[in-house]
Design a protein around this nucleic acid. Structure first.
Lengths: 175, 175
DNA sequence: ACAAAGTATATTACATGTCACATATTTTGT
DNA sequence: ACAAAATATGTGACATGTAATATACTTTGT
């Protein structure tokens, strides 16, 4: 502590408290980064990345989807076009991509057998991490947090993607 | 709703509630993404990205820093080596980079005049966004949230970076 | 004194977040 | 019927999150 004071007097600005909103900003960033790292680490043996895993699980639940529909449900890349992400998975033999019969501009995405297997493994990995997250919210008002965060991202692409996933069938472009 | 049931019966899995931990996962991801977008949009007139802005503000507060010290304080890229990020800013004339006299492996980073000016502008942009974030937490137990998130990221690189920023001088590698 | 081990930074590689633009197809308006 | 506008997807560019590797320098051990 004496050392800290000595360093502090070598031309440094006097230390100030970090503003709560600033701390919250960085904590949200930190939570996302560290969560993503843990997920990426757990998924590594399956040979998929977190974003790819999200696609696998969405297709397992909702296939067939067009690229746009998929983009509307993806949080990792909300509001954009996940063409490259899907291409990597077609290359890897996890996703089938065919031109949609009713609209030559569009494609239909489904999982291959391999994709189905990987999606099931992803689901297990996720369940383990969710159990850890459940444990960390024990004794904490999780529902309030969910409501607050939901309000924070409402009417923005990522927030809308989450809403669509919670209520499939009511937000879809007609397929 | 009738339509949703009809669509639901065309080979789709029966819809289920989204598990709260899963929702929380995606809400954190959404909050980070949308916050970053807003910040990037607000910073665009200054010609800097969110990560660069973080560097500017850290150097404004704590220069001179070595690359490793900077890496220890950065949340955006915690636990890694921000060499490319810093190089882009040296190129852009915002950061001075000189070899440290006491250790030829190391460098010392400081802001140029231009960097100082940009850092001040970044601070204003941030203040406006923090005010919005403050408004969104009115009536919400922000301190509990901060404590919970802090626990979630504790003992991980990003969380450690935040702690170091809150308590500069006690966590530094000696400079 | 010298070699081995450790360290600070730079570079490479892959994936991706974001935005802009290109191309082909479908829809709309006249 | 035809042109203009809109739309679905693919591609290019820049920045960066993450991990691995390379190089030069410093420290440690003998």
């Amino acid at each position: 502590m004496i050392l800290a004071l000595l360093i502090g007097s070598t031309g440094r600005k006097r230390e100030t408290e970090m503003r709560p909103a600033e701390e919250l900003r960085y904590l949200i960033l930190a939570a996302q980064r560290e969560g993503n790292r843990q997920l990426a680490h757990a998924l590594r043996p399956l040979g998929v990345t977190p974003s790819q895993a999200e696609v696998l699980r969405l297709l397992a639940e909702h296939a067939p989807l067009s690229l746009m529909q998929l983009g509307e449900l993806l949080v990792c890349e909300a509001g954009t076009n996940p063409s490259r992400l899907v291409s990597s998975m077609v290359q890897a033999g996890m996703v089938h991509r065919v031109t949609a019969p009713e609209d030559r501009r569009a494609i239909k995405l489904t999982l291959t057998d391999r994709g189905q297997e990987t999606a099931a493994q992803v689901e297990q990995v996720e369940a383990e991490l969710y159990a850890m997250l459940d444990a960390s919210t024990a004794g904490f008002d999780r529902d309030s947090l969910i409501r607050w965060l939901g309000g924070l991202v409402a009417n923005q692409p990522s927030g809308e993607a989450i809403e669509r996933r919670k209520n499939p069938g009511t937000h879809y472009a007609t397929s």
